[in-house]
Write a protein that binds this DNA or RNA. Structure first.
Lengths: 91, 91
DNA sequence: CCCGTCCAATACCCTTTGGGTATGACCAGC
DNA sequence: GCTGGTCATACCCAAAGGGTATTGGACGGG
């Protein structure tokens, strides 16, 4: 699992459509589809149901989405803290 | 920034020595040194002071260490939750 | 019923990234 | 000034990641 994969996952979840998410992420659809597959494989769980209409979060996926957002938020916070001159541990 | 880089950073911080951290991580010293440099470059801040005795966390580094640990813990929690059969949002 | 459209998945290629080995530069202790 | 230990650099190779082209399947309009 990588942070990039989590960003990809969140984008797909929000778009409900791999192609649109790819456009939003400025990459093409096939690599994004592969990254999602790879993430699911590593987690040992499908996160979406696929159909010809797009993708839809499974209950597991919804739960994981919360975690993913929390992780990415922590990363942003970590970066932000380093931008500040001195210590100011917000969380 | 990647999760692997954060794991590397934590290991180096805990060992205070890139070579020992590399051994603990089962990689060799030069790639680890490079990854640390790369992380520092991306963050735009040095995290350690280097010397011939090893490396030592700077104040910024100590602060970032807390964030890194929190992030990695969140990742572990996310994985753990997916291993469980059904919903049980701990945090 | 067929055709066009939209979706994800697959096949294949190429660039980039990441790790390995060998080596250098630097400092401390003796 | 030699030795041992440290991080950094140079170079190589394998693996990962992204791109294009294409396939297969489902839906809707005619």
């Amino acid at each position: 699992m990588s942070l990039v994969q989590l960003e990809y996952f969140v984008a797909i979840a929000e778009e409900g459509n791999i192609g649109r998410a790819a456009k939003r992420l400025h990459i093409s659809q096939p690599p994004l589809s592969r990254q999602l597959r790879s993430l699911e494989a590593e987690l040992g769980a499908e996160l979406f149901t696929r159909s010809t209409r797009g993708v839809k979060l499974l209950p597991r996926g919804k739960q994981f989405l919360e975690h993913a957002r929390r992780i990415l938020a922590s990363v942003e916070e970590a970066k932000r803290c380093l931008s500040l001159p001195s210590g100011a541990t917000s969380s």
